[in-house]
């Protein structure tokens, strides 16, 4: 099936909505890969809860993108029918699950950004964006509380868990600057009071994360090579494989009703 979602129907606002949708969609997919692999059964239900929340949020954003441009079809056509070059999620969200420290570090770094961004979007001039953000934020508050506790627990747990968590943070730090990069189109939306202003979010994010790292006895990497591209649809190689799996059944039966 050809990917017809590249060019049609995406004004800059829709691109932004897809970015907001793809973050939880892609992270939710990574989390559901962990099903039956959790370190303890209690954590199995918790990871699945987070994944469920994120898929629900992704669906709300995608539905809005479709409502603005009905020729896009429906939320499944967008989630299952787009090629990797047309996904606009942050690189952080697509990183592999690794060990439990990698999973929780990724979750925490994203959760803080996600919460701050949604908080800003609650005040968006676009009332639908504000409504979806307000609905999502309670869930994300809880995600952050949980992932923060795990970062601290593992950071200040045993020597082994400390080392795992420190190396997880070191690895993932390469994707931190991308959280705050905004192109001209997005900056225009910021100026209109529609999109979140990432420069003020960056200040809060760095302060919050630093405080947690200190509590977790972890150190923040300095002078870390930074990677960009997710928001322009330039992703990692494993991301394509993740999508291939996610989209395989949908694409094998074009037009089928499930």
């Amino acid at each position: 099936m050809s990917d017809c979602y590249a060019t049609q129907g995406h004004d800059s606002l829709n691109q932004y909505i897809l970015h907001l949708a793809d973050n939880p969609l892609v992270l939710g997919q990574r989390l559901c890969e962990l099903c039956t692999h959790a370190p303890i059964l209690e954590e199995e239900t918790a990871l699945m809860n987070t994944s469920l929340d994120l898929f629900g949020q992704a669906r709300n954003w995608l539905d809005y993108a479709v409502a603005r441009n009905p020729q896009l079809g429906d939320c499944d056509a967008l989630a299952m029918g787009r090629d990797e070059r047309h996904f606009l999620n942050l690189l952080l969200c697509e990183q592999g699950n690794g060990n439990f420290a990698d999973t929780m570090a990724r979750q925490y770094l994203f959760d803080v950004w996600h919460r701050l961004t949604l908080q800003a979007l609650c005040l968006s001039q676009d009332s639908q964006i504000a409504a979806i953000a307000a609905k999502s934020i309670k869930e994300v508050d809880y995600h952050e509380q949980r992932s923060r506790n795990w970062v601290i627990r593992l950071g200040d747990g045993t020597q082994q868990s400390h080392d795992y968590m420190q190396s997880a943070i070191n690895e993932l730090w390469s994707y931190s600057d991308e959280l705050f990069v905004q192109g001209d189109d997005e900056l225009q939306l910021v100026a209109q009071g529609i999109a979140a202003n990432q420069s003020s979010i960056e200040v809060q994010w760095r302060a919050t994360v630093s405080q947690t790292m200190a509590e977790a006895t972890l150190t923040l990497p300095t002078d870390c090579f930074q990677k960009f591209g997710g928001k322009q649809g330039e992703h990692s190689e494993p991301f394509g494989l993740m999508l291939a799996e996610m989209q395989s059944l949908y694409r094998a039966h074009p037009g089928a009703v499930w």
Partner: peptide, 18 residues
């Protein structure tokens, strides 16, 4: 099961209030 009270509270929330 939980390692401490904070976690017990979270785990109880995940399990018993779905």
């Amino acid at each position: 099961h939980a390692a401490d009270e904070t976690m017990a509270m979270e785990n109880a929330r995940e399990l018993y209030t779905r």
